[in-house]
Each structure stands twice: as structure tokens, then as C-alpha cells.
Nucleic acid binder design. Structure first.
Lengths: 117, 117
DNA sequence: CCGGATCCTTTCTGATACTG
DNA sequence: CAGTATCAGAAAGGATCCGG
């Protein structure tokens, strides 16, 4: 790998089982608090949310603003640079939609859930 | 998740630590045998290569052609449908390249390897 | 209220040996 | 040659407790 295929780099950043959803919500609402994200994504654990946000922050995709106050308040937003993945996210979204249909055509409606890969 | 963000679907398919490289090679050469892939990607284990290929096959991205002969011969190639991810792969590749540069600008050359995410 | 630190369970990978 | 089977180690994810 390495040289030839930097698609991996992109994937590394988007991967993590929750980053797409997190990004989706932050993109959509502009700015969100930690607790708001928890509410929007009930299935995610605190730990996961924390680590995923940290990774996105490290990659300069989102910005983390801490308000020095009690009770604490932390807001997450897309960075200027972070906006550059929007087109890519959309492309993936589009392709994903089309692919779901394609799988249906091949395997039929039932096999949808199995995800046996 | 689910409804809103089908980017996950796309990610599911491309993710697997080796799929991007595998696809890269198959795209590049058109058709490859199992052993050729092993040689092109020395770090991958047989097991991994097998499972990754099977997943790609399930998703109708690649085709698996078995020759009934001794010694066995199996060739993998991109399906017609599979070609539809090419643009997406390229987009990811492009963005990945740009992102590596961006990270360098932020953290400097040294921090490249750390990948502490 | 936000999220760090720990512990524990589950899933994923890798190495090795074996088969048609 | 192209896998499958098995087993062990690593990594990812979840649950819980704690502190500012």
C-alpha cells in the first residue's frame, strides 16, 4: 500500500463506525454540544463519542470549543478546512444509496439485513 | 444513523484495511490471480486476502472465476457494476493526498508516522 | 454537564498447519 | 494453487465509576 493508494488515508479518517453520522449531524446543524450529539445518536456510548470526536479534531475536521463555566459546555463545529470533505461525503452517500438498490436487485429484498458481507 | 446517512454503506464496503489496495491492483491490472495478489501485497495473509475478496465478491464489485483444472487457478476481475466505484475511489484518493499535506502543514513533517489519530 | 480512566467483552487479524 | 481450519494475540467497542 502506501504510495499508490491514498484512498486509505481518506478512509482512515472517515472510518470508525460513528464518524459519518457524527459528521452528518454537525454538518447539518452547524454547531452541536456533546450532550446534543448523544441525544441525536442514542446508540453511541460516551466513550465512543469522545474518542471519535477527538480523532476528527486531530484531523482538523471539527473544532472543539470549551466554555470555562459551570456546568461545563463544549461545542463542536466543522472547521473551515473540514468543509472540504462535504463533497466526498455526498459522493459516498449517493453511491451508498445506489448500492443498496443494486444489492436488492441482486439478492432481493429479504437479504437486506443479513449484512453477511 | 440509517436513513439519513448512506455514506456508511459505501464505507462498509470499502473498509477492511485491505480492500482499497486490493481494488487498486485489480483495477490497475484488470485481472489477477490469487497468488499474484499475494505477491503484490506481501503483508496480507492468505486468510485476510480470501475474506476481503469474498466480501467484495458478495457486493458484486469483483468477479471470481474458477478454472476447473489442476493445479487450480482462480482469477479476480472488476465487474461491470464494480466499475461504478472508480470515481469514488479516485475522489477519496485525491482527498487523501490533499489531507496528508494539510496535516503536515499543521503538525509538521515529523508527526507523520505517529498516526495517533 | 462533559468527558477522563478502568475494566471487561467482543470482534478482528495474524501465524501456522492441513486439504482437494 | 488456492484455499479452509484452528488457535492465539491484538484491537475495537461497551459499561461503569469518578472528577472538575
Amino acid at each position: 500500500m502506501s504510495e499508490e493508494c491514498k484512498a486509505e488515508t481518506a478512509l482512515d479518517i472517515l472510518v470508525g463506525k460513528w464518524k459519518p453520522v457524527i459528521l452528518f449531524h454537525i454538518f447539518h446543524k452547524g454547531t452541536l454540544r456533546f450532550s446534543e450529539l448523544q441525544r441525536l445518536i442514542p446508540e453511541i456510548s460516551k466513550k465512543m463519542l469522545t474518542t471519535q470526536l477527538r480523532e476528527l479534531e486531530y484531523h482538523d475536521i471539527i473544532h472543539r470549543k470549551v466554555y470555562a463555566q459551570v456546568p461545563p459546555k463544549v461545542e463542536y463545529s466543522i472547521t473551515e478546512y473540514g468543509k472540504s470533505i462535504a463533497p466526498l461525503m455526498n459522493s459516498m452517500h449517493e453511491w451508498g444509496l445506489a448500492h443498496v438498490k443494486h444489492l436488492q436487485e441482486i439478492y432481493g429484498e429479504e437479504a437486506l439485513e443479513k449484512r453477511s458481507k
